[in-house]
Each structure stands twice: as structure tokens, then as C-alpha cells.
Simulated assay, not measured.
Amino acid sequence: MSKKRILYVEDDETLAFLTADNLEQHFDVTHVSNGKEAFELFCKENFDLCVLDIMLPDMDGFEIAQEIRNRNEEIPIIFISAKTMKEDRIKGLRLGADDYLVKPYSIEELILKIEIFLNRSQKKVEKSNKNHTIGTFTFEPTNYSLKNETQQITLTEREATLLNLFVENKNTVLKREKILTELWGNDDYFSGRSLDVFISRLRKIFKDETHVRIENIPRVGFKLVIE
């Protein structure tokens, strides 16, 4: 079985060498140190997942992620950065990244994250293309899309995964810990804050749907109500 292809973008030579050396034991890794070159390579070749530093020459990680998402809504993206501000993490997730690891990070954790997202992507490919009705919208999980007569919205992979989890458990309380574990593989503070961003995004999409709402169950979790 061929190894999954990882595009790894990092301009710190020492860190890149150590990280790539470890990743190559599990994956087929292509390392690039320049942002512009990385995106050009992404456009030419096929990858299964991207690991992006943020502070890069010519084109930063945020810009790369934006361009990647314009072309491919499905491929998992993991940011690794020395930028520790909450605003940077939220910006990365809003651009469609699947996770954000702060340097110095654990190689074991990075490998685990990569495996989680690759497995999730594979499961999505294997799942049947079952659509769901949510108010006036038709939700197509495999296409990450919501459509009605006036709108067509493309979700990020993480948003689609979250919404699909809600739909499959509609009118049922989902514990916050279960959601976090399903989406991020853990239930730490930063994952929790990221979840709140995605919940807010979905609520805005359904704000005009009188029979659809995402309820906050204090100290427990959330419930998608479809009447």
C-alpha cells in the first residue's frame, strides 16, 4: 500500500530536517521552504494533506491556505506556527484549516493529528453519498455543500463534519467532549474555542430558518433541533 503524500512547508532548516525525518517513517513527504514555491507545487502535484508554517518567505501560510481552499475544499490542512495569539489560531481555522499546532510541538502529536485527518478523509470517500434536508437546505456531506433555491454555500471539511455529526444525531443532545473528540481527536481548551467558532458559523447560515436551530445546553453540549 502506497504511503499518503504530505506537503510540508517550513523555512526553518533544522526544524524541517527533524520533522521531515520523523514524518518520512510514516508518509511520503515533500518539503518546501518557500511559500510561493509550495503553492506552485500544490497546483502541479497531488497531495493528501498539507502541513504549513505561517511565517514564510514570498507567501505566508495563511495565503497558501486561502489559495488551497479556493481550489480544494477537501484536503486536510494543519498549521504549525510560533504565533501563539488566539486571533492567529482562529484566523487559521476560519480559512479552513483542520488544526493549529504551536511550536515547539510534539512530533508524536503531529503524526497522530495527520493520521486522524487522513483516516477521516478516507472514511468520507468510502461513505455513501446520502443527502439530508435541513429546513430549506439540502446538505450534501460528501460535497461539503448546502443548497436551497437562493443560496449555495460551500463548507470547509471541518464544518461539514460537524454539521453531519449534528444531522446524524438531530434533536439529540451531543456532549461537547464527544464533538471535540470526533472533530479534533481531543477536548483541550483551544479545540473548544475553535468549536465555538464553527458553531457560530453554522448558526449564521441557518439564522433565517424558522424550524432549524442549534441549541446550547449549558455545561453539557449542543443540540441541532429540526422541527
Rank of each mutant, 00 (worst) to 15 (best):
V125T: 15
P57Y: 09
K178F: 14
D188V: 11
A38N: 07
I214N: 08
R176Y: 02
F17S: 08
K83G: 08
F206P: 11
E40G: 01
P57R: 13
C50Y: 07
R213M: 08
L95S: 02
Q122V: 00
I68F: 09
I214Q: 07
G35W: 12
T14C: 04
S33E: 00
E67W: 07
L7V: 07
F166E: 08
S194L: 05
I153S: 00
K147S: 07
L195E: 01
V167L: 10
F166T: 02
T30Q: 13
F222W: 14
N129L: 06
I78T: 07
L15W: 06
I78L: 12
L165K: 03
E73Y: 11
G221C: 12
A38T: 03
E115F: 06
D11Y: 09
L162H: 00
K124P: 10
K86Y: 14
K123A: 14
M1P: 01
E215A: 03
S33W: 00
E63N: 03
L146Y: 04
Y100D: 05
D48Q: 08
K4E: 01
Q66I: 12
Q122Y: 03
P141C: 07
L195T: 05
L101Q: 02
M55W: 05
L155E: 03
L174V: 00
A160H: 02
E73K: 13
D188L: 11
N164A: 05
T210H: 10
I111Y: 06
T172K: 10
K123H: 10
V212H: 06
L7I: 05
F222E: 06
N46T: 14
T181F: 14
D53P: 08
D88Q: 07
E149Y: 11
Y189F: 13
A160M: 00
I75A: 08
S81G: 09
K147A: 08
R69S: 02
I77P: 11
E24A: 13
F190D: 10
V197E: 12
M59V: 01
G92D: 15
H26L: 03
E109L: 12
E126W: 14
Y100S: 03
N129M: 03
E63T: 10
E40P: 05
N164W: 00
Q25A: 15
T19Y: 02
V29G: 00
E215Q: 04
Q25T: 13
V102D: 00
Y105R: 02
